[in-house]
């Protein structure tokens, strides 16, 4: 197993990101914006960032830029549209008496390199129409497809399943 990302040194933006994520979670969980609450949260977040910051190497793949929040938003919109489509398709299959499924295991290749990017892609594949990621080894994701058209090869499967998500994720992750 090689993780080229985990050996890279972390940047200042990385620390800022860990701090803001911790503080955001604190504020959402406590549900108040009183200054004592936020000050305590900032203190705890600072401690977490200083103690564990260098170890949060999972965030290393993020490309920090001013446009990144917009790209995340675009990805989320795309993701939710696919999720709703997936559910109507699944409901259609389950409620049809003849159960129209033709399951097949297919392997797809990803060009994403960071562990976080691959995990996000695998998660997205799991929640989108008719696909379930079973295993990730290196750049290969094993996908269980509920309705695989006859005569599909790896290239076609990658285009049909992963291409649109990869395009979105690539804009804010390595």
């Amino acid at each position: 197993m090689d993780h080229p990302q985990t050996t890279r040194t972390v940047s200042g933006a990385h620390y800022a990101f860990v701090f803001s994520i911790s503080l955001l979670l604190w504020v959402l969980l406590s549900g108040s914006l009183a200054w004592e609450e936020v000050a305590l949260g900032a203190f705890v977040s600072l401690m977490i960032t200083l103690l564990f910051g260098p170890r949060f190497t999972i965030y290393n793949g993020i490309k920090f830029s001013f446009m990144a929040p917009l790209y995340v938003l675009l990805y989320l919109v795309h993701f939710f549209r696919e999720l709703i489509k997936a559910n109507f398709e699944l409901a259609m299959r389950v409620l049809t008496p003849s159960l129209p499924i033709r399951p097949e295991m297919v392997e797809i290749k990803t060009t994403l390199e960071s562990p976080l990017g691959r995990m996000l892609l695998a998660n997205s594949i799991t929640l989108t129409p008719g696909t379930l990621s079973v295993d990730v080894t290196g750049d290969t994701i094993l996908v269980h497809w509920v309705y695989c058209p006859p005569g599909t090869d790896a290239k076609m499967a990658t285009d049909a399943i992963a291409a649109s998500f990869e395009r979105h994720i690539k804009r804010f992750l390595v």
Binding site: L83, I84, A86, N87, L90, A91, R93, V94, L95, L99, I101, P103, T126, L127, G130, L132, V134, H144, V146
Partner: peptide, 23 residues
């Protein structure tokens, strides 16, 4: 839940049990 009951094997049941229940 109905999909969990109707699907023929464990992989297809995971499909039903994850997507529908998440949304």
């Amino acid at each position: 839940g109905l999909g969990l009951l109707r699907m023929p094997d464990v992989y297809n049941r995971i499909h039903a049990g994850t997507k529908a229940v998440t949304l």
